[in-house]
């Protein structure tokens, strides 16, 4: 990886540490997504399959902690919405701001607070923590950025904090294909 460090544009520097896009999920936490995730990972943990175990261990059914980010993701389509509905809007803002057509996530940190339960309504906001100078990796040339997301339930209890490191990039011309 090469590093051609440059300063961050002023408009972006002003957004560092600022809470953006506060959103409350449009539907409550429900067990269907827990079952989907359990099936997708072949997870037989009785905490999520057996109500009696859930009652004894956690005082009732909970959602898998790692499904936290699920509640920030919009419906792919809904009435009145235009264009692709995306999660983590700050990530897509940065792609557009730097004209970087492609992106991948490289790091993910999750800190879990109070359990999330069916019926909870989760709110979240995104905070841009950092943007790197130009970098070149095997994928192409672009920038890394770190975005934090804080999740709360309807009572304002902190249920988790998540941090993503993304790499927005443009593929090398010789590889072609990026549009």
């Amino acid at each position: 990886m090469s590093d051609e460090s440059t300063e961050l544009p002023e408009d972006l520097a002003a957004l560092i540490g600022v809470s953006q896009y506060p959103v409350t999920a449009t539907f409550p936490v429900e067990r269907g997504y827990t079952y989907n995730t359990l099936a997708a990972t072949q997870n037989g943990n009785p905490l999520y399959w057996d109500d009696a175990v859930a009652e004894q261990v956690t005082g009732g059914m909970t959602a898998l902690p790692t499904t936290l980010s699920l509640w920030m993701r919009p419906h792919y389509w809904e009435p009145g919405a235009e264009g692709e509905q995306v999660a983590l809007q700050v990530h897509f803002d940065l792609k557009a701001r730097f004209d970087l057509p492609e992106a991948v996530m490289t790091d993910n940190t999750l800190i879990f607070g109070d359990p999330v339960r069916p019926g909870d309504v989760i709110s979240h906001a995104q905070v841009l923590r950092s943007v790197s100078g130009p970098k070149t990796t095997k994928l192409g040339s672009g920038r890394f950025w770190v975005i934090d997301i804080e999740y709360k339930n309807q009572d304002g209890d902190l249920v988790g904090v998540e941090s993503y490191t993304g790499f927005g990039y443009r593929r090398a011309a010789a590889e072609g294909g990026a549009a």
Partner: peptide
Amino acid sequence: AAWFERYLTDWTGPLGRVGRMKFRM
């Protein structure tokens, strides 16, 4: 993340509670 959680709780059993997870892909 969900696969990592499954891997950990397979080992701990249902009383295991993941507090923090950081991974690099």
